[in-house]
């Protein structure tokens, strides 16, 4: 482990620093006890990949596989808030595709019956969805959140193909890309805390507390 990585948890942390230090995940980092407490998990869960984190503009998104109980309320709340309807297919957070017979042998009908979890948009610093969009419809707003401009989007699906995790979906009714806008509805409505967001101020404070 590099010195820089080892020292991560004791520094004042900003999102930029976080991204620079951790790359795409926290695996391999030794996290401070206060940060683990904030994240509601153990170092082992981080090391084994049960807990993954994504550096969002407004905070650190924590996804805890072990806590996901498969209720699909993340998809329900995503679409209720953003689409005014309830749907799995156009949800920006996706748990159903891992719930039945998912990729990598996850899901109730797999051999690893009880391994299922929500996939989320990573809010990539260099988003493949945005790069692939022929209309330049995916832009970063003032806070850095990548959003879809519905005026420009033509529903071609280039973002769906380009995203390594296929997180966007073209809504068949509106013919617009439904890409995560980081509204936080999935997190706020998760009844098991499998999804949580920790603000950068909290991450920084927890890191300094060591």
């Amino acid at each position: 482990m590099s010195e820089e990585k080892r020292g991560f948890a004791t520094k004042e942390v900003t999102r930029r620093q976080f991204l620079k230090i951790s790359g795409v995940s926290l695996t391999g980092l030794v996290l401070s006890t206060p940060l683990l407490t904030l994240m509601g998990c153990t170092q082992k869960q981080v090391d084994d990949g049960s807990v993954t984190t994504w550096a969002f503009p407004q905070g650190l998104l924590v996804v805890n596989k072990d806590k996901c109980t498969g209720c699909q309320r993340c998809e329900i709340n995503c679409t209720l808030v953003n689409d005014g309807c309830v749907s799995s297919y156009i949800s920006r957070v996706k748990v159903t595709r891992n719930l039945f017979s998912g990729r990598n042998d996850t899901g109730l009908y797999s051999d690893n019956h009880f391994v299922y979890f929500p996939d989320t948009c990573r809010q990539c610093a260099e988003p493949a969805c945005g790069s692939a969009c022929p209309q330049g419809a995916i832009y970063a707003d003032d806070s850095g959140v990548k959003k879809v401009d519905p005026e420009k989007c033509i529903g071609c699906g280039a973002c769906v193909s380009a995203c390594p995790w296929h997180m966007p979906t073209v809504n068949p009714v509106t013919n617009k890309s439904s890409k995560c806008v980081q509204c936080g509805a999935c997190v706020a409505g998760c009844p098991s805390g499998a999804l949580s967001i920790i603000s950068w101020e909290e991450v920084a404070a927890a890191s300094q507390a060591v």
Binding site: T79, L80, G84, C85, V86, S87, Y89, I90, G189
Partner: peptide, 22 residues
């Protein structure tokens, strides 16, 4: 498998009710 949606007349009020219940 379904890719459709359940349409909601008043999604704001409805979500408030769902959250209130939980």
């Amino acid at each position: 498998r379904g890719t459709g949606a359940v349409k909601i007349a008043d999604p704001v009020e409805h979500k408030n009710l769902c959250d209130y219940m939980i």
